[in-house]
Design a protein around this nucleic acid. Structure first.
Lengths: 365, 365
DNA sequence: GACCAATGCGAGATCGTTCTCGCAAACCTT
DNA sequence: AAGGTTTGCGAGAACGATCTCGCATTGGTC
């Protein structure tokens, strides 16, 4: 470690410094460090010694430019890391990528298409090798078409898209929610409330929005199917669509509860909305799992820990992240993989948030 | 939009293609697009037209190499995005960075120094302009010294470090937890339980570990000070150190509760541990805020929504993230800023998880 | 000793930008 | 009309790596 001939003060050592130190040419130094071509053992040793004497670190930018590969993938996710899904997915993706020697450049759209478009643009300019995106709700997805991506592969998570056909990793939310509804019905619930997140909506509405992201759509259809399978009449189903914000969700819960013949159970399409139910129930001194029941999509630590435990439709979030990365890297390594729409199964985890009405008929109003 | 003269099938358009299309030189095209130097209005128009006819997107790698700036910062965080702190911080950092035209390359160490060192190495090779890191517990921090960083600025969050003196953004956890203890004591609590996260520990122990990260240390000291201020005797303080894992935390809670003269309140040093308390309390049919009280550090959505609401020492997490980014960018823009140790205030948010023992003396065993 | 193959190494091109510099044409100014 | 100044543009170097190619040297074979 010859620390300081202070000839060039800043200026990080480059490969030419290493070459000079070892008394060889740039080419030889590169070959020695990169272990390709033919180099004698002795010069390899000399170059390596020179390299760490100087504290040489290769400039990945230069390398990337030459070889055309950055070993970086871009992740475009909607903003809410507080959302139980996206933080777990992010972690899984970062970890899995690292396992394969990739790093991830992360951006978030706030569910806004303009930002998403911009984010993808920037990522592409930074020459990411591929993209993982959860597409925000939008009319047009032209910016996700292969041509716009400069041939760089992309995989979608959480939500599928029909128009530009793309590989996506999703879950069978239809079956999952249908199962949840069946479970509730088997416990005697007949008046069902559905609290559906719809970012396309302002505030709260009974009207079904024109456009729902696939995840929400599947959940909605699952609820519907489960209910109609059991012969639940349409007027015993309480649908309500609301914006994905605490205020709106809470208003929606309140309005559900204030209806004549209110639901005995509320299904929510994500964790944040489940919290809204908890909050309003708490305000009204209603006990979850007794006075009002609750099932939500996505498991979380708190859902398992609190009393009563919340019954959930659990999705294999980590698996989604891992699969997204492996599929993406496969396509990067060998372009031309078939487009794949992966649908993973969900799991109903029953805890204590749905009351057994057969054991407490007297309580039902 | 002349879509396809299919002369060169792949090969993204570069600036020479744009120049050719516009009938000017590379230099002129660059100048026109980059709006520097002198270029006539008409050629600017022509070049721009050519650029978007071709769908030209600058290669940020090449640009970065030339100008020596990547507009990218590296974030090295410990793994747990599920941890209420780190996911919020990440979001805040990503958002704030975007606001300034920066993107963030994210990696996580699993609280392991070797991984942290490696992660920083990789980030530096990718030529990030600066680093934000939450240092993992470790003996040596040589890899955080300026020399090892090639002069690139760094700011720490969540935890401060004494040895290499570095700019850090932290909170006054000492004062925060002391206030929490005072609050509990004012409500009649005299037997205090402290559940302290210590990643350096295996399982559960009463012995104070040799090394605690600054955050945990401050909280510990704060508890201690609060207790001794009120004259709480040492043998009424129940300390327990445990690994930051669900299993260990739950074991620690159980062991606390099983002591002779068990604590009436448990302070936990993070959210995950608070969940452990909730869980064990639930198993034992103990009601939080009545049979056992709870205060934790860090607010979260669930802590506010559940019944009873959890009293917390809230930290301004988003502000930490924002400040970290602004300080870092300031140093990037103008190196030589003084080292700064920012300590932000916390806020005690009282909800219903700590029982008022003066109103229910009869319940105290 | 002559020929051929194998080996080790260096010169130089390349990736896609930016930016300095100099040159020519156009534009004043007197 | 002659000089100087401005303006617009292009040639070419630079950033820091990789990698092809060819040249010299070595080694082996008959």
């Amino acid at each position: 470690m010859r620390d300081d001939d202070v000839t060039k003060p800043s200026h990080l050592p480059t490969i030419v410094d290493v070459a000079a130190e070892a008394g060889v040419s740039r080419a030889t130094a590169s070959r020695a460090l990169g272990r390709y071509g033919r180099t004698s053992a002795s010069t390899i040793a000399r170059v390596e010694q020179a390299a760490d004497a100087l504290g040489y670190r290769p400039n990945e930018l230069a390398r990337a430019m030459r070889v055309g590969v950055t070993k970086t993938i871009g992740l475009v996710i909607i903003a809410d890391f507080t959302n139980a899904f996206f933080d777990r997915a992010t972690k899984a993706i970062v970890d899995e990528a690292k396992l394969h020697g990739y790093q991830v450049l992360i951006t978030n759209t706030d569910e806004e298409t303009a930002i998403e478009r911009q984010a993808i643009e920037t990522l592409l300019e930074k020459q990411v090798d591929g993209l993982i995106v959860v597409p925000s709700l939008s009319a047009g997805y032209e910016h996700l078409k292969p041509a716009q991506l400069g041939g760089r592969p992309i995989v979608l998570i959480d939500r599928r898209l029909d128009d530009p056909p793309l590989t996506s990793i999703t879950t069978d939310d239809f079956a999952g929610t249908r199962e949840a509804v069946r479970h509730a019905i088997s416990l005697g619930h007949k008046r069902l409330g559905f609290l559906i997140s719809a970012s396309s909506v302002e505030g709260v509405t009974d009207q079904r929005p024109t456009h729902l992201i696939s995840t929400v759509l599947d959940r909605t259809e699952g609820f519907l199917q489960g209910a109609s399978d059991a012969g639940i009449r349409r007027n015993s189903q309480h649908w309500i669509f609301c914006e994905d914000k605490p205020k709106s969700s809470e208003a929606a819960v309140a309005s559900l509860l204030d209806r004549p013949n209110p639901p005995t159970i509320i299904f929510t399409s994500n964790n944040d909305m489940a919290l809204a139910v908890l909050k309003i129930a708490g305000n009204r001194r209603l006990t979850i799992g007794r006075d009002i029941s609750l099932v939500t999509v996505d498991d979380s630590q708190w859902a398992a820990a609190i009393v009563p435990g919340i019954t959930v439709v659990a999705r294999p979030v980590e698996e989604i992240g891992q699969l997204a990365v492996t599929k993406l890297l496969a396509e990067i390594a060998e372009p031309g993989q078939p487009i794949e729409v992966v649908v993973l199964p969900t799991e109903l985890i029953t805890r204590d948030s749905v009351a057994n009405l057969y054991l407490q008929d007297y309580r039902v109003s």
